[in-house]
Design a protein around this nucleic acid. Structure first.
Lengths: 220, 220
DNA sequence: AAAAAAATTTAGATTAACCTAAAAATATAT
DNA sequence: ATATATTTTTAGGTTAATCTAAATTTTTTT
């Protein structure tokens, strides 16, 4: 049997909240993320458990089963491939594609996903730098650093964002901070931990700690 | 307020069944087309009428209102644009795209449709030869002929199909009959009205009346 | 370790989209 | 024009996904 739009969303969110190690996710965290009430979450968890998609014991939180993980990763694959399509082919900004991809990710057709993937040239990363799982469901999170961990004088490459909010992405656009750009930390203000950074050996600007905390970079 | 997936499908089907002149559509015809029961149709008609999308008087059948027509045509526009995308960009066959487009047509975003349209080069027809309504909702049905109306000796161009069933489209593929090909009627068998036709001034073959009845052509 | 607080589940409703069976309206046939 | 058949609607249920309020379990605090 097929999984509903809603079921797929729960699985995707459980995946996201359970972290790299796949730890238990609480009912309240799910209620928060799904914008529903805890009671509704409990109902859905019973259903997903019956379908063998999650491990669930009352009051103990949930984890994905292997089969649930497979579904979740496939939804993520579709979401990220569609985001690439929207940005690379249709010319949307990286701040505009999330909601549309949220719909497209539930279109059911393996045939479609594989052709889309080929059409896009088998991209490894989406427009926010998030890795795209392959057709077999292998999802390797690259080990990037958060910009706050980088020392003065280091030059790093901007590889992704932790916050996907349009307002944050637009802020980066205005600052000229794009995926793949070079960032050199010039100095860090002790008082508020804001940083003076040079972008692409070109222009220099201040970024707040809030911004630094949400930038993923790669050392070279 | 937004229209649901189901509501959009009803509007699309009412549009299709009410023909060029927009005549009344019966409850039973809708039940047939939606694969539901008449009672379910009645429920939905009351809802659509309340939303001002259809004209509905008990026992008298339904017609789309202007606003319902607008919604229906927009769904058709999206369906046909996605079909072009699937065939032209992803390499699907014309016999494979209907079900996928049936899902994609309900993705809500005007922005998306307009960018998709531009990406595809503002196509006027979908892969089956059906005209694509423009952004303003203008849908002009070209006046093609059915192949059965064509006389012996005439040369016509294949412009569309009436039957969209994969099995019919695959049959045409095997016969080498593609959109835009030239068809010359060589002779017509009086007994069963099957026709001997030459395709692209090239190969000749027999086609049954069933096939002729479902081919739309243009005189030149 | 008992009390208080927080998290979670259960119980009982609601809405959208469907269903069956029965009633009512319309159409057809004699 | 009446009887019969067909179509459509009404009445009353079902399921998925949600809700609120109350009950229960777990966690935290004193």
């Amino acid at each position: 049997m097929q999984n509903s739009f809603t079921e797929e969303n729960y699985l995707k969110i459980i995946h996201a909240l359970s972290g790299r190690e796949g730890h238990e996710v609480s009912t309240n965290a799910l209620a928060e993320s799904t914008s529903t009430r805890a009671a509704s979450v409990t109902d859905m968890l019973r259903k997903l458990a019956e379908k063998g998609l999650i491990h669930y014991k009352k009051y103990q939180g949930v984890r994905l089963t292997e089969s649930g993980e497979k579904v979740a990763i496939n939804v993520i694959r579709k979401h990220r491939l569609w985001e690439v399509f929207l940005v690379e082919k249709l010319g949307f900004g990286w701040d505009e594609v999330h909601d549309i991809a949220e719909e497209l990710e539930h279109i059911p057709s393996d045939h479609l996903v594989e052709r889309l993937d080929a059409f896009l040239g088998h991209p490894r990363f989406d427009p926010h730098g998030d890795p795209i799982p392959d057709a077999k469901g292998n999802l390797t999170e690259p080990d990037y650093f958060i910009l706050t961990e980088v020392q003065i004088g280091e030059k790093v490459r901007m590889m992704g964002v932790l916050d996907h909010a349009p307002s944050f992405l637009q802020h980066l656009d205005r600052a000229g901070i794009t995926l793949g750009c070079l960032i050199e930390i010039k100095e860090i203000n002790e008082y508020d931990k804001s940083a003076s950074v040079q972008i692409n050996e070109n222009h220099t600007l201040f970024i707040s700690l809030e911004v630094s905390k949400n930038l993923l970079v790669q050392r070279r």
